[in-house]
């Protein structure tokens, strides 16, 4: 054994920023997360050059997966041009040399905060969702250790009770985004704060979804072709946001999740939240050669 065999050449920064030991740990945990869909796997979660809560969990997964040929798309609230998306995209490109894109169809790896693109993802694509709070039970049990025991026991009674109480009090389930969902019939997970509109996109999808919470040091996964069922009562169906009839005032796109833009006269306009879809819709309308992929929702209905 020589010193040379124990060490490697000095480099100012490891490829993909994370060193080998951090990557190996994340790889091992991702494999287990894929093997037990929806189950939160604890991982060390190194500090990265970005503040906790700003996508450090998603970033560590992306840094582990990236190669100089991985085409990366980064979105925040559906938009590629959000400042935080721009910041993460720039960081990923600068530590990996990976090409970037805004086109969902061109991307190999999509890191996202709070949205799943409207165009269907393929079976060669990976979606990395940033997760602020990985624990779907937190609203009924803030103590992480007790909540973990509840998952171990598949003890989801309090979660159901909370949904039931909302229906009794408000006439409907009041959960906005982060709708708790049962994965593979066993583990309740948070799909991350994606809108209810996006949760059905995870059910029996073709792509792989990795959900990673850097601050809370947990990651979970939804492999392709995996059941993801929002918690609902038989007689109170799951309802996505009432956006099916809205039209984007900029692109004319209709039947997708929208941002509401308040107007000075007290009304609202809407614009499509998936910014790349908006861009493509405008380009197509202007006669440019643009390919819009098949979308999960057609005419505002999940197809």
């Amino acid at each position: 054994m020589t010193l040379q065999s124990l060490t490697k050449d000095w480099e100012p920064m490891a490829y993909g920023f994370l060193d080998g030991s951090a990557k190996r740990e994340i790889r091992r945990k991702m494999l287990k997360a894929i093997s037990v869909p929806g189950c939160q796997m604890p991982y060390a979660s190194r500090e990265v050059p970005m503040a906790r809560g700003w996508g450090t969990g998603g970033l560590q997964v992306s840094c582990t997966l990236v190669t100089p040929r991985t085409r990366i798309k980064v979105i925040d609230q559906g938009a590629d041009d959000s400042v935080n998306a721009a910041s993460i995209r720039k960081f990923l490109a600068s530590v990996s040399g990976a090409p970037v894109t805004t086109d969902t169809l061109q991307a190999d790896l999509i890191q996202s905060r709070h949205r799943i693109p409207e165009e269907r993802l393929r079976e060669d694509q990976v979606l990395v969702l940033q997760v602020p709070n990985p624990e779907p039970l937190r609203s009924v049990q803030p103590n992480m250790s007790i909540a973990r025991q509840m998952h171990a026991d598949a003890d989801y009674g309090r979660m159901w009770l909370q949904l039931y109480e909302q229906i009794v009090r408000s006439g409907r389930v009041m959960q906005g985004a982060s709708y708790p969902s049962l994965v593979n019939g066993r583990h309740v997970m948070t799909p991350s704060p994606i809108p209810r509109w996006d949760v059905p996109k995870l059910h029996m999808a073709r792509h792989l979804t990795l959900l990673s919470a850097g601050r809370e040091k947990r990651l979970h996964a939804v492999p392709p072709f995996t059941r993801v069922e929002p918690l609902v009562f038989d007689d109170v169906p799951y309802r996505v946001e009432d956006h099916a009839g809205l039209t984007c005032h900029r692109s004319g796109a209709r039947g997708f999740f929208m941002n509401e833009i308040p107007q000075a006269d007290g009304t609202s306009l809407h614009e499509v939240s998936d910014s790349d879809l908006g861009v493509k819709t405008i380009r197509a309308a202007e006669g440019e050669d643009t390919r819009i992929g098949a979308t999960w929702y057609v005419d505002g209905e999940m197809s």
Partner: peptide
């Protein structure tokens, strides 16, 4: 501190939902 300042980030989607 990171989580505290992350509330500055846009939350359009969750708010809309």
């Amino acid at each position: 501190s990171g989580f505290c300042i992350h509330f500055k980030l846009p939350h359009y989607v969750t708010f809309q939902s």
